[in-house]
Design a protein around this nucleic acid. Structure first.
Lengths: 262, 262
DNA sequence: AATCTAGTTTCATTATGTGAAACTTTGTTT
DNA sequence: AAACAAAGTTTCACATAATGAAACTAGATT
């Protein structure tokens, strides 16, 4: 399932169990968990007990199933609030989505993956946790490429090494060389497109959010469909998305990133 | 800060550190954390290292501060989605908030506290994590009392024992006896009011969400202000909130609570 | 240069986690 | 109803991992 790091401490192991439970996407029985777990029965059992007692897992006695617990939601609330990006970006995203009438995403880089931290959908009013917390591939999404393109070399190498390069559509970049060329173009241009690389019919324009020193804080995108728009059409939104991205960066910087030279 | 349970296992201790970091509500320095922590420097240091390496904490090298990490947001996403209540309730909450034009809350009981898991604000369109994950007192909120009132005796005793009974307003119930009387009235009536018990000027009507067997799944409320409404006015919304609560209960039950006799 | 504070590493000691196996409970088959 | 199987829980000798006092280093401050 996940890559297992051994002897990494008890805490790391317990968190791996959390990931496993979360990975099912539904309440799981102990035995199902055991099948996927590298730990022996008694060990896994103790972990699950401790995590449940701690509120990190919730045990449903009727069904005898475990699911991620409410303590996580409480902690995530703190994470979101404390985050230097999401709370600041909120009103800019509101404004942008109102102005362009399309779906707007805010994402951060979480290791080699894209993690969506906020979203506005012009039509359906709200998405809550169903949107925030979602992860996606970095190499074939607008926000992902926008962030990768402005990473320092060492971090970029590391991130690229971890991409899966699965071909989602005919347009997906499926090797590191092609991706690097695309990233160079993005760096040159200042923003990224998603040309149906992740989902057929879905296109977007994405802009990085950078500190003055050029450190990547996140990215935001405006998404549309090939049925309604083409890339040239999305360019209309460029001034607004750029303004928003810069405004967010400026606020975030003043607030919490006094930007020591790196 | 929090109650400390000793010898409760390494995982529990690590999670306590998480709570402490989250409790600050802002990025914290190691030394600030040390002041509040019962652990010696080296021990706390190791915890913070492990948690950071695991993505449960984020370390800002510029400021040398720790904040809750992105892995939490990812896990909370799973928790929210897997939860038996929030995803099901979503469209009902949408509909209810549209219909009544007031703020609607969805909450669950997390130990002795109320944990808000969703919210619709008629005016301001969205609140994201800023709303979900928030905790509040059970004894002086509509949703809190609506849930407490339908708890089995042993759980109720336990929950009441943990209430702080802080007097937020002149209307706040400040002792267990008064609260128990109010809960009896709520049980009788089938729903709860908040008569400015938590915040002056804020009133609400709240309805529990119960399985057929009477187990408490959560509660939902419609909130207004004394400037616009009074309790009698809120009663107008009763049929709709009751219908919504029952619909949510029915769906949740079919979906994941086949309701073994309790 | 001396002093202070915050952060990091070391290492002998001890507590804690580990997991094979035995056991109990629950549900299914004959 | 008895026999069986599968899932869940407890035990305990053993090994690993956590502990924390103290020593150390890096930056500030005087």
């Amino acid at each position: 399932m996940t890559e297992r790091s051994q002897g990494d401490g008890t805490v790391a192991k317990a968190l791996m169990v959390m990931d496993d439970v979360a990975g099912f996407g539904r309440p799981v029985r102990f035995s199902e968990l055991l099948d996927r777990s590298p730990y022996p029965k008694a060990t896994l059992y103790r972990f699950v007990q401790v995590l449940t007692k701690q509120g990190m897992l919730h045990f449903d006695p009727d069904r005898q199933t475990y699911a991620p617990g409410l303590r996580l939601v409480r902690l995530a609330h703190a994470a979101w609030q404390t985050s230097a990006l999401a709370p600041i970006a909120r009103r800019h995203i509101d404004a942008l989505s109102d102005a362009v009438g399309e779906t707007v995403h805010l994402a951060q880089l979480d290791g080699a993956q894209v993690l969506y931290v906020d979203k506005r959908n012009a039509r359906h009013p709200i998405e809550m946790f169903s949107a925030a917390g979602k992860v996606g591939p970095a190499y074939c999404t607008g926000v992902g490429k926008a962030m990768l393109a402005f990473l320092p070399n060492d971090q970029l190498d590391h991130a690229i090494a971890q991409q899966s390069f699965h071909r989602f559509t005919p347009q997906t970049y499926t090797d590191a060389a092609a991706l690097r060329a695309e990233l160079a173009a993005i760096r040159e241009r200042g923003f990224a497109y998603d040309r149906e690389e992740h989902e057929p019919g879905i296109i977007c324009i994405a802009h990085p959010i950078l500190t003055r020193a050029g450190r990547v804080l996140g990215a935001m995108s405006v998404t549309s469909t090939t049925a309604r728009e083409n890339l040239a059409g999305l360019d209309r939104h460029l001034p607004m998305i750029r303004t928003a991205a810069e405004a967010i960066a400026a606020e975030a910087q003043d607030w919490r990133f006094p930007d020591a030279a790196e």
